[in-house]
Amino acid sequence: MRYTLTLVLILVFNSAAAEGWEDQAVFGSPDAENTLSIISSTDTALFSPMLEAFIAEQPNVTVEYFVTGTSDLDRRVRKTPEAFDVAISSAMDLQLKLANDGHALPLPNILHPSWAQWRQSVFAFTSEPAVIAINRSAFAGMEIPESRQELIEAMRARPEVFRNRVGTYDVRQSGVGYLFATQDARASETFWRLMEVMGSLNARLYCCSGDMIDDLTDGTIAVAYNVLGSYAQARADSGKAYTTILPSDFPTTMMRTALVSKASTNPKRAEEFLQFIVTYQSNGHHTQKALPPLAERQNGTERANIALEPALMTFLDTLKRNKFLKEWQDALIQN
């Protein structure tokens, strides 16, 4: 089975058409002696500066970089853990559950604050808020909403402008979308009211932040709710077509996490890579195009990140998930 899978993977990799992958790339010399296989939910463009820096430091390593959605990533790592050395995902809950279920290799040598790691297995290296992105033209001559409540009011005031022109994650497909939605739902009832309003405007559902921003840029949608701030920021300057809002009522901030697969065939390199990204992210190599750093814990809970704790698994419970998805569909899919 393992052999076949490896074979399939090699074939997949060799063929130009990447089967099932959103994207894939190879960094470093292809005939280097070590190969590091990374499965990630982060777009290659955002991650490449870091990978290139790593290759510069370790020229004898080739990095194979596979991009897929967070839910698919979780599925693949569970199915063929030996195929990947490192898993990087924005779905904290899925990553934590991977570690809880024993799929992550503990790396006791990496020094990282306790709030930013779990069991020395899951390491957070960015802080990324979920933002509301709005197309400037749709709000021309109007006040730009600062919070979810104001967004609800704006959409209720002019439903004709927003009909078919609001978008958010399809939480059934996207792991990070599900994480944002569940954390929002935990925080406030406003979330459900917003979902109902969005449902009444026949909201569009997306698998990923990238697609949402594409549609926002070309004016297909006027509002994108719970877009990954890092993605929006990376492309904000390009057209000035949209702006991002950090909701003032309550923010939902996710930490991107990395773990080393327990079945990794190259655990030493993988550990070095994790050490590298943890250090890299804290050393201020940040440009507009790169991933944001790990935010220090602010005073109070105002901008607190979603905590890396076992409770993240709550919404992954089958019963709980079914119930949540049912409520979400009831609110959002009304026709």
């Binding site: 704790e309 409770a311 709550t314 919404f315 019963l319």
Partner: peptide, 14 residues
């Protein structure tokens, strides 16, 4: 049967 697993149930096990 409906079981709405409370967030606090696992949170308290941190």
């Amino acid at each position: 049967i409906e079981l709405d697993l409370p967030y606090s149930a696992l949170s308290m096990l941190n």
